[in-house]
Design a protein around this nucleic acid. Structure first.
Lengths: 143, 143
DNA sequence: ATTACACTTGCAACTCTATTGCGTTTGAGT
DNA sequence: ACTCAAACGCAATAGAGTTGCAAGTGTAAT
């Protein structure tokens, strides 16, 4: 119960300090994302919120708004569906990590402990401006 | 003209040796992909074929069939649209390379000269089974 | 060259993700 | 409490991709 209240207030504060109105739909949306370890699709968020009878268009708009305010991140993991996750800002390192998605079961993992670096001899400047890295393959479950 | 004939025959042979029927739609589809440096979406392929009046469902099915036969590869680059490219098999090294897509203009590049390797200390077995790598960011044009 | 049949195709209907217009409701500063 | 821009619900829309089915066609065998 105390946990619930905290989560509620945390979400409200997060939304308000982003310059958005703390509506029930937004608070609920943020709480759902906060309770998940991996990025969620719009459909998954909507399902969690079904008992609140929040319109899917509203969920989409809220997710989009929160992305625009840098509260959450929208990632495209390659299965043609957007996924959303809360940006965990820490003082000195930006929250950015590759994502892994299983091409068999569709499960998604955040690869916080993996870093990639270029071994090529080429000097393509493209690499300096990479904003997102997605790895696709087969997860342990699907072998 | 000679080039055209060669391309036509090349496509026919490629399709036949994959165990598929060399229909006009399939030959035309393969020729379009063969003439492109970067992966094309279904819509782009369809547009190229519009004068032939080939149904979009047919194009989808043919692309899917060619993927199943390992003639072309289907990549998901993160803008929620499938892209297709011919697999250039060479004798000793498999044709596999990361793709780069510009989040601004949507342009796609094959990064043949770039290789990625893990620098993490973790021993996650996931990395051994990576089948596709996608990098998203801003291209030179879009700065 | 003809035939037969499985493979392909065209068409239409459909699913799913995502977006947009608009009239109504509501959060939050005054 | 009042006000109004921000947010919402609802419905319609757009585009990618899929599927069922009847008609058409490539290809191997005759």
């Amino acid at each position: 119960m105390n946990q619930k209240v905290n989560s509620q207030e945390w979400a409200r504060e997060k939304i308000r300090s982003a310059g958005l109105r703390a509506t029930p739909a937004r608070i609920a949306t943020l709480k759902v994302l906060h309770g998940s370890e991996s990025p969620l699709t719009h459909a998954e968020v909507s399902d969690e919120l079904q008992n609140l009878e929040i319109d899917k268009a509203t969920v989409f708009r809220n997710l989009t708004d929160l992305v625009a305010k840098n509260v959450i991140r929208r990632s495209a993991l390659g299965d043609n569906v957007w996924r959303f996750e809360i940006i965990k800002e820490s003082a000195h390192k930006p929250d950015s990590h590759p994502h892994f998605i299983c091409v068999d079961c569709g499960s998604v993992s955040c690869m916080e402990d993996v870093e990639l670096k270029r071994t090529s001899t080429s000097k393509s400047p493209l690499f300096e401006r990479i904003t997102e890295i997605v790895l696709r393959g087969h997860c342990n479950e699907c072998a």
